[in-house]
Amino acid sequence: MQDVHENEQDLRQRIEELGPWFHNMQLEGVETAPEHFLGDYPSFKWKGFERVVPEDLSGRTVLDIGCNAGFYALEMKRRGADRVVAIDSDPRYLAQAELASRVRDLPLELREMSVYDVAELKEQFDLVIFMGVLYHLRHPLLALDLIREYAARDLLLFQSMQRGASTTMEPERDYDFDDPSLFEDPSGPCLHFIEHNFAGDPTNWWAPNRAAVEGMLRSSGFAIKEHPEAEVYLCRCADRPWGAELPPVLRR
């Protein structure tokens, strides 16, 4: 029993050393962020949309972009995914994910890299997870285009913070130069730019409304398959509309 106690103490110490954690996870009974301002996050969030993700991922590969501490990547591995590659640009988050992966005995392939570098993986995945990242990016539409071009083979699980109107309008195929209706309709697509901080975070650059999120997904070649709850979408790869191709300088 003494050894168990010492192991638990070591685990608690390691969790504290790697803090703060944004993912509250149960590791051998120890919570990583028990005082999280959102509560038991992201576990409670996951319960709201987990039904749209295949329960059995055997034979499939998964890429988790902006994996943070690896909550979703580990869920995909638990569902039997053959390989789960999890990337993040923050080495501390990757260290958290490595610890969680080791403690739960669910192997992940962890890489320190940005969404803008997905072409370097030289692989397309059956399921790409891109949750809680878009609004942190200076170039969000480019990120979606690169994912569609280089990373996604079939499904995209997507989430973004949204602000503004939650209703959507059906956009016309074209608008006259002097027609202001697209810009005056609150249900029209709008991407709010945040110059300084939002919620104390200087990396919160954009706050799209629902119409903007859905329009951006379609524009990058993702057909919305499921919308299980606010801000969350399961998409399938589709044809990109005319004019949405990557410029030659971004093709590899």
Results as ranks from 00 to 15, higher is better:
103 V>L: 13
150 Y>N: 11
129 I>Y: 00
105 D>G: 11
111 R>T: 06
139 H>P: 10
101 S>F: 02
133 V>A: 01
99 L>V: 07
96 Q>V: 03
126 D>T: 04
133 V>T: 01
135 Y>F: 15
109 E>C: 05
167 T>R: 06
106 L>S: 12
109 E>N: 10
155 L>V: 06
119 A>C: 06
143 A>D: 15
123 E>Y: 10
174 D>I: 02
89 S>H: 07
113 M>Y: 09
128 V>W: 11
125 F>S: 02
163 R>P: 00
141 L>Y: 12
121 L>K: 01
171 P>K: 09
162 Q>Y: 02
166 S>L: 14
173 R>G: 13
110 L>N: 04
88 D>A: 06
146 L>C: 07
103 V>E: 09
126 D>K: 02
100 A>M: 00
94 L>V: 01
140 P>W: 10
169 M>D: 12
164 G>Q: 02
114 S>D: 02
173 R>S: 15
93 Y>N: 07
117 D>E: 15
141 L>P: 08
127 L>H: 03
159 Q>D: 06
136 H>P: 05
165 A>T: 10
97 A>V: 03
125 F>N: 07
114 S>G: 08
150 Y>L: 11
157 L>F: 08
131 M>G: 04
137 L>S: 01
143 A>S: 14
159 Q>L: 11
100 A>F: 00
104 R>F: 00
172 E>Q: 14
115 V>A: 11
96 Q>A: 01
119 A>K: 12
129 I>P: 01
96 Q>W: 03
152 A>N: 00
88 D>F: 05
135 Y>C: 09
158 F>L: 12
152 A>G: 03
143 A>V: 09
174 D>T: 01
135 Y>P: 12
138 R>D: 12
120 E>Y: 01
129 I>D: 01
164 G>P: 02
106 L>M: 13
124 Q>S: 13
99 L>Y: 04
172 E>S: 14
110 L>I: 04
145 D>K: 10
126 D>A: 03
118 V>E: 10
147 I>W: 15
172 E>L: 11
160 S>R: 01
155 L>P: 10
101 S>P: 11
87 I>A: 06
151 A>H: 15
93 Y>A: 13
130 F>V: 03
173 R>K: 11
162 Q>W: 03
169 M>Y: 09
146 L>N: 08
129 I>Q: 04
87 I>G: 09
167 T>Y: 13
164 G>K: 05
111 R>N: 03
131 M>I: 03
87 I>Q: 09
